[in-house]
């Protein structure tokens, strides 16, 4: 004979399986926080490069129209910082999510991870190619804002396959990116806000909501 508890258990099981099988839920808030910190560090180093090469504004954009030898060096340095920042952010985000999936005993590399990755990578790779072409043709002005816009689109798309809240992070990135498109000379500031501050806020909120209880 079935009891009320059994029925409730069954319903909870059903809900859990539906969620587990359709969304990648191991994404850790710490991943967001660590990626944000990496971005802020990257922005700080970038600012250092710009300050050293004698720029008065906080942006690569205003001076790169006159592509001299010195500014090429500057761009190379900024690109290097950008790549390192991206790599560090990705690695740290991966580590925290890996730890969380271990804790929850959910295999990290499964169906949902594949789906999430594909749906994030499509806008990211397309965006990356667009930005690459922009740099080849000298439109450095738009690189920062476009990376925010494409990243925002990737997140909105990804929200169907992981924690739904990531959608709002996506919207915020999109808004920042679009505002930045019409601003000149604040590229690095917007970049630091979008990739640094927003990630930290998002990560903290997600940790507060989903991980705080388990981690005490």
């Amino acid at each position: 004979m079935r009891s009320k508890e059994e029925s409730l258990d069954a319903l909870q099981d059903i809900r859990k399986m539906m969620e587990r099988s359709s969304r990648f839920i191991s994404l850790s808030g710490w991943s967001g926080i660590s990626a944000g910190i990496c971005a802020l560090l990257g922005a700080w180093f970038g600012y250092g490069v710009l300050a050293r090469t004698g720029g008065e504004s906080v942006s690569a954009s205003s001076r790169t129209s006159q592509v001299g030898l010195s500014s090429m060096g500057e761009i190379q340095q900024l690109l290097l910082i950008g790549r390192l920042t991206f790599a560090a952010a990705a690695v740290s985000a991966f580590i925290f999510t890996y730890i969380r999936s271990k804790k929850n005993a959910i295999p990290m590399w499964g169906l949902t991870a594949k789906r999430l990755l594909i749906n994030t990578m499509v806008p990211m790779i397309v965006g990356g190619l667009v930005i690459l072409r922009m740099m080849q043709t000298g439109y450095y002005d738009l690189v920062g804002s476009c990376s925010l816009v494409f990243y925002g689109l990737a997140l909105v798309n990804a929200s169907k396959y992981t924690l739904n809240e990531i959608r709002y992070l996506g919207y915020a990135e999109l808004a920042l990116g679009l505002i930045d498109l019409w601003q000149r000379g604040y590229g690095l500031l917007f970049w630091a806000l979008g990739f640094g501050v927003l990630h930290i806020i998002y990560g903290t909120m997600m940790w507060w909501k989903y991980e705080r209880v388990q981690s005490k």
């Binding site: 099981d13 059903i14 809900r15 399986m17 539906m18 587990r20 099988s21 359709s22």
Partner: peptide, 9 residues
Amino acid sequence: LGVMSVLLV
């Protein structure tokens, strides 16, 4: 029950 839950979504 689990199989059916997974297949429904």
